[in-house]
């Protein structure tokens, strides 16, 4: 399943729109800027890397390239209990950062949304400190809120 096939054709009148792939982790909807995404993967067999930071789930082979899998759930400090049924399959969003590929492990992928700036809000001051680090801001959607993931920051924070 490639990211491209999921793009909903929305109107392209405004140039202040942002295309985001929405992903769901523990019931929360997140947005990842579509231009940063290389691939969307189903559940993969992942080789664990001993001694690596806890957020690093391991590495996997994506068409001959080695991709490092990041457990976003762990990074966001979300309890595994929230995941519900543990046998539920996960998915991965592959992003490129600093010439290296990373697979962000998430629960499932939602739609691609084209959002105008008028629904955008900066991070609320009360947002969890961990989340504030890796969130670029919030979009007010109908009935729910979308947290925009700052991928470089997310990966840098694993690095550090």
């Amino acid at each position: 399943m490639s990211a491209q096939s999921q793009i909903d054709i929305l109107d392209e009148t405004s140039d202040e729109t942002q295309e985001l792939l929405t992903v769901i982790i523990a019931g929360q909807r997140f947005g990842i800027p579509i231009l940063q995404i290389q691939d969307v993967l189903g559940e993969q067999s992942i080789t664990k890397i001993p001694l690596a930071p806890p957020e690093v789930a391991g590495s996997l082979n994506l068409r001959g390239r080695i991709v490092t899998a990041i457990d976003v759930r762990k990074r966001l400090d979300i309890d595994d209990q929230g995941k519900g049924n543990s046998s539920e399959k996960t998915m991965g969003v592959v992003v490129e950062y600093g010439h290296e590929l990373y697979n962000l492990i998430i629960d499932r992928v939602g739609d691609v949304l084209k959002l105008k700036n008028d629904t955008f809000e900066n991070n609320p001051a009360t947002l969890d400190a961990v989340w504030r680090d890796i969130s670029m801001g919030i979009h007010r959607l109908d009935g729910e809120l979308l947290v925009i993931l700052d991928v470089p920051k997310l990966l840098d924070s694993v690095n550090a």
Binding site: L51, P53, V56, I66, E100
Partner: peptide, 15 residues
Amino acid sequence: PSILRDLELFSGNTI
């Protein structure tokens, strides 16, 4: 990957 550069026990990875 650069994330794992600090791990001195590994010299690389392969497929």
